[in-house]
Every structure is written in C-alpha cells, then in structure tokens.
Amino acid sequence: MKTRMRVLLLGAVALLAAACGSTPDAAPFRLPVENRLPVGATVLNAAPNQRADQSCDPTASLRPGAQPQPGALPAGSTMAKIVAGGALRVGVDQNQFLFGYRNPATGEIEGFDIDLAHEIARDLFGDPAKIELKPIESANRAKALVDNQVDIVVQNFTPTCARRQDVEFSSVYFETDQRVLVTKTSGIHSAADLGGKKVCGIPNSTTLDAVFALPDSQRPTVIGIQNWLDCLTALQQGEVDAASTDLPLLYGLKIQDPNLEVVGGPMAQDFYAVGIQKQNTDLVRFVNGVLDRVRADGTWQRIYNQRLSVMGPSNGPPAPKYKD
C-alpha cells in the first residue's frame, strides 16, 4: 500500500511539474469553446421586409357597428360560434414580461395583452374567465390563425400589408418605438455603435427590418432566436452584445436584470393590433367595438397603470383608424 501511494505521489508531482512549465514548448491548455446559444438560433442574412409592401394602410381596420351584448349575439355569427365552443381561444406569448408571461408564483400567464384578451371574452360571454390561452412562438402567430388553432392572437402583433394577405387585424391598441438593450458595461450607447456586434431578434419580426436598414458601418451580425427569454439569456451570457425590439419588450427584459439598460433613440415606430382570421370580418368589427369600449371607459388606462407603469406615464390609447 505504501509503495502504491509513493507511485501515485510521484506521478502527481510529475504532472504538477509539467503544468508549471517543465516543458516550455507544449501548447497551453485551453477549454473548448462552447456555443451556448439556444437550440434553433441561427445567423440571419437578410431582412424579413415585413414593411416592404406599402399597398395599404396597415393600421386601418373595419369600423364596428352596433355592438351586440352577451347572450344576444347574432345567430350564425363568428361570435356565436365561439360562445358555443365554450371559450375564446387566444394565441399569446408566455415569455414577454409585462405583456404576456407565465408568473412563476402562480403558474398563470399574465400581462397587458392577457388582460386585453380577457376584456374581449367579457364582451363575448359576459365572463372574462371564458378564455383558453394558447402560447405560441411569435413566428407562428399568422399560421396559428390560418390553421384555425386560435380565434384571435393578442401578442404584440404588428399589422402590415404583407401580413394582411393572410390575416385581418383590429384597430391599433398600442403604439411604441424600437430601441436597443445592452449590458451597462457594453460600451454601446446607440444603434450607431452596433457595427461588428451581435444582436439578437425574433425571426420574421418587423423590428428586424430596422436593424438590417442600418448603414454598413453600423450593421451588426443578426442572430435569430425564437423567444425573448432565450434572447435575454444569450445577452447575459455574452453570446450576443445587444437585443433590439419594441421599447415595452426591452423594458420587460431589463426589469429581469438590473445590469441591463435601454440605450439610443427611436429606430422605428411600431403598433400592436389583435390578429383575427381573415374571413371573420364580423369578429373584426366586434373586437373593434370592445377596443372602443376599453379606450372610452378607462379600462385601457387601468390596465396600463397596473402592467406598464414602469415605463412612465402613458399618452393614452392610440386613436382608432377605420377604413369603412
């Protein structure tokens, strides 16, 4: 036993001597480089050009008519069919703090968008709880409507002429602009400092257009990541240098990490509307009637104060724009 221990000790000493430089020509030891980006992350080489089609006014929607009351919905209408199904099926996010996120204390999905969806259920059923929340990835919002997986999408959904080829939109219920999120020690102070950096964003989102539109000297490498929590993790781990999207979403990420800050001026303006199946124009008008109510009776402001007060005082809900 003593002989074996002596051999082991001599071996350990030899290894220590080697590590201390007894073989100066040996290459220094390096840990393998590990890519910690989430599964599915990819380098994006072109803008999605969601705003390229300017053939319509994407923020104009169908004018609401006389608003039917719960229990008196027109027979055969989309609204009556939804009520017959027992719940309003809503496509939402569960990873966007402030707008749609899963509260770890309760397990429930909460946020500004979620509260707004409950208001639509209230006017359909007379009961805001008659709702079925279906988390979907941002890139699949239009597909979820086209495939009839959901009745509506309330998920930071920006209306564009390109998207209107497949789905319809309500009037706009939120207006914001786009900025940049970085760590406080990044040395990045605005979008002008992004040249050669890595920036994460959601594939096919409208906000990527503004990133790709930066001059060549300011153009970053764009990393497409499927949801904002993964983007946040990549930023915290140093796998990307910045994130760029709408201001409320960036504030939602910043609140989760005090080492982050929002920098720079507006890069683009953005709007949110409720996505609806294209053929269901009666539901579009109904939802617009709900939105008119929440603007007028103080509900919108109450929800803002509860969910988004961290962003400072609001300018109130955006005025609706109707095309007929």
Results as ranks from 00 to 15, higher is better:
residue 7 V to M: 12
residue 10 L to P: 08
residue 12 A to Y: 00
residue 14 A to G: 11
residue 16 L to S: 13
residue 18 A to L: 13
residue 19 A to G: 09
residue 27 A to V: 15
residue 31 L to M: 13
residue 31 L to N: 09
residue 40 G to L: 00
residue 44 L to H: 03
residue 46 A to R: 11
residue 53 D to S: 01
residue 60 A to R: 00
residue 60 A to H: 05
residue 60 A to K: 04
residue 64 P to R: 00
residue 69 Q to A: 12
residue 72 A to M: 11
residue 73 L to N: 05
residue 73 L to C: 04
residue 81 K to I: 10
residue 87 A to Q: 11
residue 88 L to C: 07
residue 94 Q to G: 08
residue 97 F to K: 13
residue 99 F to Y: 12
residue 99 F to M: 13
residue 104 P to E: 10
residue 109 I to S: 02
residue 110 E to A: 06
residue 114 I to G: 06
residue 115 D to E: 11
residue 116 L to C: 03
residue 118 H to F: 08
residue 122 R to Y: 15
residue 125 F to D: 00
residue 125 F to A: 02
residue 126 G to F: 01
residue 128 P to E: 04
residue 129 A to T: 14
residue 130 K to H: 09
residue 144 A to D: 05
residue 144 A to E: 06
residue 145 L to Q: 08
residue 146 V to H: 08
residue 147 D to M: 07
residue 153 V to S: 06
residue 154 V to K: 06
residue 158 T to F: 06
residue 163 R to G: 08
residue 165 Q to S: 12
residue 169 F to M: 01
residue 171 S to P: 09
residue 175 E to M: 11
residue 187 G to D: 09
residue 188 I to L: 07
residue 198 K to I: 08
residue 209 D to I: 05
residue 210 A to N: 04
residue 210 A to M: 04
residue 215 P to S: 00
residue 215 P to E: 04
residue 219 R to W: 12
residue 220 P to V: 01
residue 222 V to S: 01
residue 227 N to D: 14
residue 232 L to T: 04
residue 234 A to N: 03
residue 236 Q to F: 02
residue 238 G to T: 07
residue 238 G to H: 01
residue 239 E to Q: 02
residue 241 D to Q: 03
residue 244 S to E: 08
residue 247 L to S: 12
residue 247 L to N: 14
residue 248 P to W: 01
residue 250 L to W: 03
residue 258 P to I: 10
residue 261 E to I: 05
residue 268 A to C: 11
residue 270 D to H: 12
residue 272 Y to R: 07
residue 273 A to S: 05
residue 273 A to E: 08
residue 274 V to R: 07
residue 279 Q to I: 09
residue 282 D to Y: 10
residue 282 D to C: 02
residue 296 A to D: 13
residue 308 L to T: 03
residue 313 P to I: 15
residue 317 P to N: 00
